[in-house]
């Protein structure tokens, strides 16, 4: 057990989620011949890019000690704006979509910062309210894109690799660098790990929270635009439940809800785990419902394993 602990916890060890990813990858490549084909693997990347992009931002917000439940609604609004405003101008539509996400993030961040209220409450309100805004804007109608450049973009490839997958991987790399290399990234850890010490050290808590909420808003909106381009349309219910999938992916990736701990590489693993599971079970013709159950079971198992590994039984008081 000790060696296992060391393996999981050591400075340079492989994150446990990646072991899982590799395991299911091998499993499915034995179960289905098609699984290992280039087409399917790029397909997985495209399928995961939506949740994946949001999860990048969510990782920062959660390391910061917050949470954002409004990402699904933000995604939906951005998608509707991106399609709905195309008649006026494509550039305007995309700018408005991305801008709306950042604005909503800024509003969430501002409220959390200024009131100190649990981000859970604040973003829960936003989740309801923004969905209302979508319905208000769309009149409960789905929008279809008449601009083929827009819908072609979602299906385009560079060489054999879909553009969406490239965007996702590029963003992952950038966010990894932001989190590990920049002052903002490091301070995000500090604020989540020990807010009081951070204040004492002169770190401006609110500013970092704001920035992270804006980042997650931006990524949710970007995911919305890309998803709309994939589908060539936007429905008012688009993005519903995405917050749950995103949080699941981030938690699977090892980021702690209490803040101060997490990584983009872990999140990438979490996102891929979900994507591979969905894809692989789909190939094996398991009904989609089972994925939900298995996902829930995995999430709980991760928690239990984490608890067991981190519990020094004799030194702790029994509470």
């Amino acid at each position: 057990m000790t060696s296992l602990k060391g393996f999981f916890r050591g400075k340079t060890s492989i994150q446990p989620i990646w072991i899982f990813v590799i395991a299911i990858f091998i499993f499915f490549s034995f179960m289905s011949e098609y699984f290992l084909s280039l087409g399917n693997i790029t397909n997985i990347l495209v399928q995961t890019s939506t949740i994946g992009l949001i999860a990048l931002g969510m990782t920062l917000v959660m390391i910061n000690g917050n949470i954002d439940l409004s990402v699904g609604a933000t995604l939906g609004l951005a998608a509707s704006l991106a399609v709905g405003l195309q008649e006026i101008s494509m550039t305007l539509a995309i700018l408005a979509a991305l801008g709306s996400g950042m604005l909503l993030g800024a509003i969430n961040g501002l409220i959390v910062w200024k009131t100190g209220v649990n981000a859970f409450i604040v973003t829960l309100g936003a989740m309801l309210g923004v969905r209302g805004l979508i319905f208000l804007y769309t009149g409960e109608e789905s929008f279809y894109s008449m601009n083929f450049a827009f819908s072609d973009f979602g299906a385009s490839t560079i060489g054999p690799i879909p553009v969406l997958a490239i965007i996702f991987l590029l963003c992952t790399l950038v966010m990894h660098l932001v989190l590990t290399r920049t002052g903002h990234g490091r301070n995000t850890f500090a604020v989540g790990g020990n807010p009081e010490a951070s204040i004492d050290a002169g770190i401006r808590l609110g500013r970092h929270m704001m920035i992270n909420f804006i980042i997650v808003g931006f990524f949710a909106a970007l995911a919305g635009v890309l998803l709309a381009s994939q589908m060539g349309a936007a429905t008012p219910n688009l993005g519903r439940d995405y917050e749950l999938w995103t949080i699941t992916a981030v938690v699977l990736g090892g980021t702690k809800l209490t803040g101060g701990f997490g990584s983009i590489t872990g999140t990438l693993g979490g996102v891929l785990a979900i994507g591979i599971l969905r894809n692989g079970m789909n190939l094996m013709q398991v009904p989609a419902f089972y994925v939900l159950v298995i996902l829930g079971a995995i999430l709980i198992s991760v928690l239990i394993i984490d608890k067991k590994l981190n519990a020094p039984s004799t030194k702790e008081v029994r509470i």
């Binding site: 002052g183 010490a197 951070s198 004492d200």
Partner: peptide
Amino acid sequence: LGSLPKKPGNRV
């Protein structure tokens, strides 16, 4: 903490 040495672009 709070005074990490920086390079341009807020890089540590």
